[in-house]
Design a protein around this nucleic acid. Structure first.
Lengths: 343, 343
DNA sequence: ATCCCCGCTGGAATCGATTCCATGGAATCG
DNA sequence: CGATTCCATGGAATCGATTCCAGCGGGGAT
């Protein structure tokens, strides 16, 4: 007696027309107190629940938004999703969370799903170069917001972290402790954050008059294994760095493992600073120094922007500040590092 | 020229009726090769995309399923979500991922959303005692599957881990190393896994003839802080345990922090075994021994079951095996532990 | 050659809610 | 007291796709 209660049933029970019943329940038009009461009573008695699909069909608004992240299992994106979802819920929007799973094809699949489901808007942490279905979104004029990353050539509001500031904080912190040779483990140039952070790193190095040896610059793909490879390359070079800066948390973990396997101790023989704070980075031994942005705020802000766009309000891109969380992994002084034997 | 292409437009362009166009695109009825070709061509030229909401309104099937987990940010549930989502996608079902956020009220909110959205089925890792909207689901006869946890009094297929086996593996492992006093940090009795694991622990203790001192049994709430509190209680007791078994990964982290703060070294002064393997547990120092289940398989299996129920096939509950991953945190021998000073 | 059957098609009803339009009655004003 | 306005309401059109029904025409059987 619950699954298929329609507005017609409610109207019949209340002794009014469906039109009146709809008006009462949506509360948009004037209705008499008597009708209001009868309809409301009938609705609760029958356990009526509006059919969102019929509602969305008639009124062009579906009250559902799509959120596409590159990997739900990455805590950073899980936090973004959480922030976005809570914000949406507060405005009674439903979030369809999809997982590109680090795969451009799957990203396209889900964008297609979003379009088919006629979501009111989409938040995306874009993968790749912005080909394929990303262009279709533009043509379809679906409200769109970028989060964390952007794609060149799209005139879309975005919420990003202040990468330049973050890199500057990290480099300044390491320079303060006397490091002059900082090994950089960067992201892929195909992702905007990868490019931005590398540029900022080069500037920061120059600003602080540190060693700009090109051998200190490596690039990974924001995945764990690539962090290890990059660390190995840096540590076996002719003049190894005394500190490492990883542009992403997963690569930092890879680097950490690699460093350990070489018998070096993070925080004593070698300093390490990572991007993105992950809850358990403080639980590692030693706790990891990070340059962090508030992922939850990133998600929440993106959703706010999206709702603005949907409602036809102006939406300005937002750049959120990063902050340095100094922990023990960066307490190594440069002199202790050089020439340590690699077990 | 993209957003509002309807079937009517396609039909007009192809010079056929909407009926024929629909038949061609859904492929259910017989159509002439000529019509097929013309409709397909028109559809691609116009960039037609079926309106899922209209489709769902007419045919009772929405091809969307709801997945409600207690916390997306918990890697365990993120993995479940990932597994479920991939399986759904393979059958061209969309997953609406919702986050109860450890909150029964929010769980009800989302169940309501699911019902309103007329999803074809729901997978849930239930919170609390199964009051409130969980009963409404039963009345609404929405296909339902429990994952990881169950609720008494519901005749619903479920996918759970073999808790008894997991506990036995952990206890046997510790007993093998000579431990007789194992401190147990359990989950809340309001959650089925909390109850099952405690029962299994008591049985395992008896089976291995270990110390059944009630002072060794504590309970938390599956959150991090409670693990610390429980550990503190155990370690300050009259005769502290030489090993700890935590019923959940987050509580294990809490316990870990607490143990460290007391100046004890996990793996040397005290053994620690945790439930649920989380990617980075192997990165801790020392790496954590865990009793793990394959969360992704849990999610995938649950989705398969749900699709079975939706399609009217029989669905039998599944119990997945757990396995022990011995790492350094449980290498402590009992004799080293007793009477260690608490810094 | 006639009849029947079957494949294909157009037209129309349908799903459930919203919203426009017209109407009836009450209230207000001159 | 009659005319105008306003409020509440019922009825109907509408959103986009699916599906039933009936009809048209062609091919095979007799």
């Amino acid at each position: 007696m619950d699954a298929t209660v329609t507005l017609k049933d409610v109207a019949a029970r209340a002794g009014v027309s469906v039109g009146t019943a709809s008006r009462v329940l949506s509360g948009h038009s004037a209705t008499s107190p008597a009708a209001r009461e009868r309809v409301r009573a009938a609705a609760t008695e029958l356990g009526y629940r509006v059919n969102a699909r019929a509602q969305a069909l008639r009124s062009a608004r579906s009250h559902a938004v799509g959120l596409l992240v590159s990997d739900v299992r990455n805590p950073f994106f899980a936090d973004i999703a959480h922030g976005a979802e809570q914000t949406a819920l507060a405005s009674s929007y439903v979030t369809l969370l999809a997982n590109a799973n680090e795969d451009t094809a799957q990203q396209d699949t889900y964008l297609d799903v979003f379009l088919t489901q006629r979501v009111d808007g989409i938040i995306i942490a874009p993968q790749g170069e912005g080909r394929g279905d990303l262009r279709a979104l533009e043509r379809a004029r679906v409200p769109l917001v970028f989060v964390d990353r952007t794609v060149d050539g799209f005139d879309v509001p975005s919420v990003t972290a202040d990468n330049a500031q973050g890199v500057e904080l990290a480099v300044a912190h390491l320079a303060e402790q006397g490091h002059t040779r900082i090994g950089y483990i960067g992201g892929p140039p195909s992702v905007s954050t990868g490019r931005a952070r590398l540029g900022a790193f080069l500037e920061a190095i120059a600003r602080h008059h540190l060693d700009d040896d090109p051998a200190l610059i490596t690039a990974g793909d924001f995945r764990r294994a690539s962090g290890g490879t990059a660390a190995a390359k840096l540590l076996t070079s002719h003049r190894p760095p005394t500190a490492l800066l990883a542009a992403d948390s997963l690569m930092a973990v890879g680097a950490l493992t690699e460093v350990r396997e070489r018998g070096l101790r993070i925080g004593e023989d070698l300093a390490l600073v990572a991007f993105d704070d992950i809850e358990w980075f403080g639980e590692l031994d030693p706790p990891l120094t990070v340059v962090a942005h508030d992922a939850r705020a990133l998600g929440a802000t993106a959703m706010r922007l999206l709702l603005d766009v949907i409602d036809g309000r102006a939406a300005e891109s937002v750049v959120l500040p990063m902050r340095l969380l100094p922990r023990r992994s960066s307490s190594a002084r440069p002199h202790t590092a050089a020439g340590h034997p690699s077990a």
